Every structure is written in C-alpha cells, then in structure tokens.
Lab assay of single mutants.
Amino acid sequence: MEVRTIKVFTTVDNINLHTQVVDMSMTYGQQFGPTYLDGADVTKIKPHNSHEGKTFYVLPNDDTLRVEAFEYYHTTDPSFLGRYMSALNHTKKWKYPQVNGLTSIKWADNNCYLATALLTLQQIELKFNPPALQDAYYRARAGEAANFCALILAYCNKTVGELGDVRETMSYLFQHANLDSCKRVLNVVCKTCGQQQTTLKGVEAVMYMGTLSYEQFKKGVQIPCTCGKQATKYLVQQESPFVMMSAPPAQYELKHGTFTCASEYTGNYQCGHYKHITSKETLYCIDGALLTKSSEYKGPITDVFYKENSYTTTIK
C-alpha cells in the first residue's frame, strides 16, 4: 500500500517557510505537534488534498525554529505562539472599519479597549522592536488589523473576551517599542525636605499616572512627601515624541487643539466601556464603527496623549 502524501510549508514567522512532505494517514499533531492554519487549530486533523502548498504555523520545537521565533517575536515564552494563534482565530472574524481616516474595530468580545489602543497607536510616533509587531502594525494602518490585535493580546497575556485596560495595554506595548531616546527629568520640591531631581528613561519617561493635564504637570502637581507634608512635583525636561497622561476616570474637559487623542471610560472596574476622542479640525468621538463630532467635550476621561518633541522648564 502506497503512502499518500502532500507537500506543505511549516513556519513560526510566515517569513521562513520549511518544506514538509506530510503523510495523509496521520494527523498534523502526530507529525508536527500543535499546528495552526489561519489561526485555526488543526492539530487533530489529517492532511487533505486542499492543504497542498498551504502554510501551517507550528510551535518552535527545534533550534532553527526557536531562533526564527525569537528573532521575529522577541520572546522565548513557549506558550506565546499558541496564544497568538488562538487569538487570531477570533480577531480574523472582527470587522476593521476605516473611521475618520483611522483603522478602528467594530465592537465584539469586549474589544473596546483594543480599538482605543489601536486608534491611539496610529496617532503617536512609535516604532516597535519585534519585527512581528512592526509588520502587523503597518498592515493594521492599511486596514488589516487582525494579526496586530492578536499579537497585542498575546504580548499582554490576554484572551479574547476578557476586559482590558488601555493604560495597561499601552504599557505592555511600550515595553516592546523603541523608547531608548526618551528621557524625563522631574523635580520634587518640599518646604521641609528641599528639592530632589529624578531622571527617568524609556517607558517611565512617557507615562504618568495622577493627572490628565500635561500643562498642569509642567506647572506642578501636589504629591505627598515622605515627611508627610505636601510637596510639588513638576516637569523639568521632556525628550520624547509623545507623552501619555493618565488618571482614574473623572469628568474632564478636553479643549480642541490642546491634545492629540484621549480615552474615555464609562462604567466601573468590573464592567465598563471605552471610547476614543481625537482632536482634528474639530473633536471626534470614535466608538467602534461609530463616529460623532463636537466642538467641545466633557466626560469621564482616563488617558490623554500629547505630541511632544523637546521641553525644558522655565521655572527657576
């Protein structure tokens, strides 16, 4: 009895394709271990004539594949690729409408935090270190965002349907971005203890939790000093293409032309909904596939993004 075979390709990165001759009487799992086709788990399936010449994702289970996976995804987590594939199996079914010149995501599976993050990423200057993220990001900007969303979920250790947080998501993504040249110098002034300067680099240099107003941050924000008295913390120097200011959701007025974009969060910790506000020729609110415009805006804002380049204080 002759062994019926077909020729397929296996890959971990969709760049390096490895030619395989597979036995049609055995499952993919018996031949390769966990195997995925377009995100779908085909591990328990036997090869079919229609699979001839198709590319299958496999887990990096030998040295060659491990090197290829690390170079593309910059992670050695053995569960990463499987999590990416199972997320992709959902995100490829989502709709990605162009809204006001940006790629958004039609609401499904509690994905409003991903839509808000995706919209924000198209408006701030950011370059990702893992080629996987950078490639998928370019495709997302062009309207094909399924891979990018699935990668975000995998890097953030999230599953489809789980509630997510924009600030946490951005923080994970910033860790995989090139923020080497970003720098922030802060000064804390206390009447009792004097003053202390701190220099922050990388992710810490672009994120701040405690106030939404970048102007206020430049002037000074009140913080408790270690001595128990009130101290003032203010920005001395900022070198970065953008800054992200966050605070627990509270009524906040966004003035046209003073910011790049913002995240609105309605609801409580267990259950809520994100919308995205962007400042173009007027203010726009993007909620999944829905767009509304207004000249002014007041609502429960939790993150505001500002364009920056270089700032030095005039406070002496």
Rank of each mutant, 00 (worst) to 15 (best):
V203G: 06
T198R: 13
T27N: 15
G194C: 06
G194M: 00
Q20I: 11
I223G: 14
R83L: 11
N111C: 00
Y137I: 08
K7S: 12
T169A: 06
A154G: 03
P300T: 15
H51E: 12
E125V: 05
R66I: 11
K233I: 12
N61L: 14
Y137A: 08
E168S: 13
G202N: 05
N147L: 04
S181T: 12
L283F: 11
K218S: 02
M170W: 04
P131H: 03
Y265P: 04
V188I: 11
T5M: 13
D62M: 06
D135H: 11
Y265S: 00
D180A: 08
T116V: 13
A145D: 01
M85E: 03
L133R: 02
T198W: 11
A205D: 00
M209A: 15
F259K: 01
T199M: 09
Q98C: 13
E68M: 06
T55D: 04
F70N: 07
N100E: 14
A142M: 13
M207S: 05
P241L: 04
N309R: 09
C156Q: 08
Y96P: 05
F80Q: 05
A69W: 06
N178R: 09
T260L: 15
E168Q: 15
Q197M: 13
K218R: 06
K46M: 15
L59C: 11
A115Q: 10
K158W: 04
K275Y: 00
N129T: 09
L59V: 14
D287T: 07
H176S: 05
L102V: 07
E253T: 11
K316M: 15
K255D: 09
F242H: 02
Q134N: 10
C182S: 03
K219W: 01
L212W: 04
T169W: 00
K307Y: 09
C156M: 13
S50Y: 11
D38S: 09
Y155L: 07
Y297F: 13
A108V: 08
T278I: 11
V42C: 15
V221A: 04
G288Q: 01
A205F: 00
E253G: 08
S181N: 14
V99K: 11
S213I: 02
A136D: 05
Y96I: 04
C193D: 02
F259T: 01
S181R: 14
V67G: 13
E144R: 08
Y72F: 09
T159Q: 15
A69Q: 11
F148Y: 03
T266N: 09
I105F: 02
E215Y: 03
F9D: 06
K219P: 00
L151M: 07
Y274Q: 05
E71F: 05
I124H: 02
M85S: 04
N157V: 00
S86T: 12
V22N: 05
M244V: 00
K46T: 13
D135S: 09
G202V: 01
Y36K: 01
M209D: 09
R184T: 04
R4S: 13
C149D: 05
G220H: 01
G101I: 04
Y297A: 00
G228V: 01
M170L: 11
E264M: 12
A132N: 06
H48I: 14
H18W: 06
N61E: 12
P97G: 06
Y306L: 00
T64R: 10
L186N: 04
T120N: 11
E281T: 07
A247I: 02
P97A: 09
G288M: 03
T199W: 05
D109Q: 14
F217G: 03
D109H: 06
N309E: 09
K7M: 05
C225Q: 02
N309L: 09
L186Y: 14
E281F: 00
T159G: 10
Q230H: 07
Y57W: 11
K255C: 11
M244P: 01
A150F: 03
L37N: 12
A177H: 01
Y214D: 02
V236K: 04
F148G: 03
T55G: 07
Y269C: 15
G202H: 06
G143L: 03
F259C: 00
V221D: 03
L102G: 06
F217M: 13
K218P: 01
Y84N: 06
L163Q: 08
H90W: 09
T19F: 09
N14I: 07
K201I: 11
V188H: 09
